[in-house]
Simulated scan of single mutants.
Amino acid sequence: MEQLATFIPLIAMFVIFYFLLIRPQQKRQKQVRLMQSELKKGDAVVTIGGFHGVIHALDESTVVLQAGDGSKLTYDRSAIRDVKSV
């Protein structure tokens, strides 16, 4: 019984870490993967580096973004951080 009492704080700490740190991070990663899988031509996006552009073309792993001056840059699909609503 004494040994169990010594492990209770450790178990409680793991449960707290799970609900405060691990679970919210997993939910966020799932939302990001869903957003990246639903990208389509014409979406205004922001990359993880802060580049703002419009999707010109895309395939399974890359995205071609068009800047305001007409130049086109190729990024990995995983580099898209956010889709801007117009």
Rank of each mutant, 00 (worst) to 15 (best):
Q36T: 08
F19E: 10
S37K: 14
M13E: 12
V54P: 00
I22R: 09
Q36F: 02
Q31D: 14
L20W: 02
Q26A: 10
K84V: 15
L58T: 04
M35D: 09
A44K: 13
A57M: 07
K27N: 13
S37H: 09
E60A: 06
I11S: 07
S37Y: 03
D76F: 12
Q66M: 14
Q3I: 09
D82C: 07
D69N: 15
V63H: 01
D82F: 08
H52Q: 11
Y18I: 02
G49I: 04
L34K: 15
V86C: 08
V63N: 01
S71I: 02
Q25N: 14
S78H: 11
G42M: 08
Q66G: 02
K41Y: 09
L34H: 14
Q26L: 14
I22W: 09
I11M: 09
Q3V: 10
S78N: 13
K40W: 01
T62L: 14
S37F: 03
V63Y: 03
G53N: 02
P24Q: 07
M13N: 08
F19R: 06
I8F: 02
T74W: 06
H52C: 05
V83C: 11
D82L: 13
L4D: 11
G53Y: 00
I11L: 11
I16N: 06
F17Q: 11
L10M: 05
L34T: 15
A57E: 15
L58E: 05
G49W: 05
D43H: 14
R33V: 09
Y18L: 09
Q3F: 09
L65P: 00
A57V: 02
L39N: 04
L21A: 12
A57H: 13
T47V: 07
S37E: 12
R33D: 11
D59L: 05
S85H: 14
T62K: 12
F7H: 11
K40T: 12
A5I: 03
L58I: 08
H56R: 11
R33E: 14
T74V: 15
K30M: 10
M13I: 01
K84Y: 10
R81W: 07
G50Y: 04
A79M: 15
D59M: 05
L34Q: 14
V32S: 06
Q66F: 01
A44P: 01
F14K: 12
F7S: 10
F51Y: 11
S85Y: 11
L58V: 06
E38F: 03
D69K: 07
D69R: 04
I22M: 12
V46D: 00
D82M: 11
K84W: 09
S85R: 15
G68P: 00
V54S: 05
I8K: 10
P24C: 07
Q31F: 07
L34A: 15
T47R: 06
A44W: 05
F51P: 00
D82S: 14
P24A: 06
E38G: 03
D43Y: 13
K41A: 10
F7C: 06
V54W: 00
K27A: 14
T47E: 08
Q66P: 00
K84P: 01
Y75L: 15
F17T: 06
F17Y: 09
G50N: 06
V15H: 04
P24M: 07
Q36K: 02
A12I: 03
G49K: 13
R81F: 08
